[in-house]
Nucleic acid binder design. Sequence first.
DNA 1: GTTCCGCATGAATCGATAG
DNA 2: ACTATCGATTCATGCGGAA
Lengths: 287, 287
Amino acid sequence: MKKISTKIILGDCKEVLKSLDENSIDLIVTSPPYADSRNGTYGGIKPDHYVGWFLPISKELLRVLKPDGTFILNIKEKVVNGERHTYVIELILEMRKQGWLWTEEFMWHKKNCYPGKWPNRFRDSWERLLQFNKSKKFNMYQEEVMIPMGDWAKRRLSNLSETDMVRDTSKVGSGFGKKVANWLNKDKVYPTNVLHIATECSNRNHSAVFPEALPEWFIKLFTKEGDWVLDPFMGSGTTTRVANRLKRNSIGIDISKDYYQMVKEDADNYKDTLLFEKQAQYGKNRK
Amino acid sequence: MKKISTKIILGDCKEVLKSLDENSIDLIVTSPPYADSRNGTYGGIKPDHYVGWFLPISKELLRVLKPDGTFILNIKEKVVNGERHTYVIELILEMRKQGWLWTEEFMWHKKNCYPGKWPNRFRDSWERLLQFNKSKKFNMYQEEVMIPMGDWAKRRLSNLSETDMVRDTSKVGSGFGKKVANWLNKDKVYPTNVLHIATECSNRNHSAVFPEALPEWFIKLFTKEGDWVLDPFMGSGTTTRVANRLKRNSIGIDISKDYYQMVKEDADNYKDTLLFEKQAQYGKNRK
DNA sequence: GTTCCGCATGAATCGATAG
DNA sequence: ACTATCGATTCATGCGGAA
C-alpha cells in the first residue's frame, strides 16, 4: 500500500512556497482568484495590478516544480470598461521572461456558463487552461485520459464528458443509453485540447472553484501514482481531494482560514481511510 | 430589389486597402495566412515577423471600418520549438496601441479537427476569433443568431440529423423519443461566445480557410442587409460568397492570381442571379 | 424504476445611481 | 470625472418531489 500524503497549509502562498523544496513537485494545477473577484480574500486584486501580484508567486512555482513537471493555470480575463483586459496575455509574456515555457493552451468550455444578456456581448462560456513547463521534455501520460468512443459517438457526441456518458448509460431502456453501451466497447481515442465540462452547481456539498473533472484530467495526464501535486490557491480543496482519490501526494495552500479548516477536516477523513501506514513525510517519498 | 455589389480585387491588401474610403466598411472578417504557412503566397511570414507584417494592414483596416463596425480576426498561434508562439497575443497588445478596442475573444471549437498524434501534445481543436472595434458602441443584431433548444438537447444531440431524430422518435415507449418531441417545441436562446462548427471537408475544389458557417454567423450578428463586408485575405472567397447570399455588399482582396480568378468567376455567376439592376458602385450604396 | 416539473444557484456584465 | 454599489437580465445543471 502506497503512503499518500495530503498536506494542507494555511498562509499566503507567496510566502509558504518558499518553504517547499526546489524541484519537488510534479504538477501544479490551480485556479487563482481572478482579478477584482473574491474581494477581501486576497484584497481584491485590481486588473492593472494582477501581473505584478502574480509574478513573485509564479517565480516560486518555477522553483519548486520538477524539471519534467507541468504547471496548469486556470484563468480568464474580466471585461473592464467594455474591453477584455490584457492582464492574462501580459502575464504569459512576463512568465516567459521568468523562464517558463508556454507549452500549450487548453480550452475549458463551460457547458453551463453564467446567464445574462447585454447589448454588446454574449455569455462567456470558456476559460483558459494555460500549460507552462520548465523544459520541453516533460512527463505526459496520454493513454490515461483517452476517451472511450467509437466512430458513431466520436462524430456526434464528442462534446460529452466521461461522466456524462456514464450517467446517460444508466438510463436503462432508452435508445440513447443502449447506444452509449455500444460505444463503450469501441476503441479509445485521444482527446483534443478542448475540455467540455460543466461547472458544478452548489446543489452539491461544496461549491468548488472548478469541477473535479478538471484537476482529475490533468492529474491523470501529467502525473502517476505517488507523484506530488500542488495547488497554491486551494480554495475548497478540489485539487487535493482528487489527488488523494487518485493516489497522488498533494499540497494545498490557502490564505483563508475558513477554507483551510474545512479542507483540513476533509483531508483528515480520507487520510484515515486510505493510509495503512503512518503518513509519508513530504520530501521523503519522491521518485 | 436591393443592389448587391461584390468586388473582387487582386493585389496586396496592404496597398489595396489604401484605395478604400475611410469609415466605409461595416464588418471585416478574415483569416489571414498564419505564420510560416501558405508559403510563396505572402512569402511565408516568419512567426517573429508576424506582428510587424500585420500592423500596417490593421492600421488600414482601422481606417476603412465604420465607427460602429466590427473586425473579426480568425487566428491561431503555431507551435514553434515546442512552445506556443506569442505573436498573436503580442499582436493584440500592439493593435490596442493603434487604437483598436479588444472587445471580445470568441472561441471556434473545430468539432472535427485535424488528426494526428504527438508525444507531448494533443490535437489542436480550437482557434481564436478576436473581436476588435473602433468604439464601444457598435452594431450587434443578437436576435439574428439565436439558437433553438436551450436545454439537454442543444449540447447532446445538436449533431443528430433529422432522420436520426425521426428514427429514434419512432421507438415506441423509449424515453429517448419522448424527449426529442419536447425539444422541438422549445424557445430559442442566445448563443455563447463559443462556436461549435466543423471544418469543411474539401467539398469544393479548393479547401476553404474556414467553413461558411463561420463568416455567416458574424455577418448575421454584426451587419444587416445592404451593409458592406470586407475580407482582405479572401482566399477561396468564402466570406464574399456568404455575404452575397445574405444580401450584403462585399469586397474581397487577395494577392494570389489563382484565387482572384476563381473567386471572380464565381462572383460573376451569382451577380447574375441576384441582381436585377446594374451593379451598385462601391461607395454609393452605403447607409 | 423512470420521467417530468419546479426551484435554487452561479469566476458575469451593463447601466444607473450615489458619494 | 472617477470609483463603489446595486438591480436587472438570463439559462444549464442538479436536486427533490410528484405522477
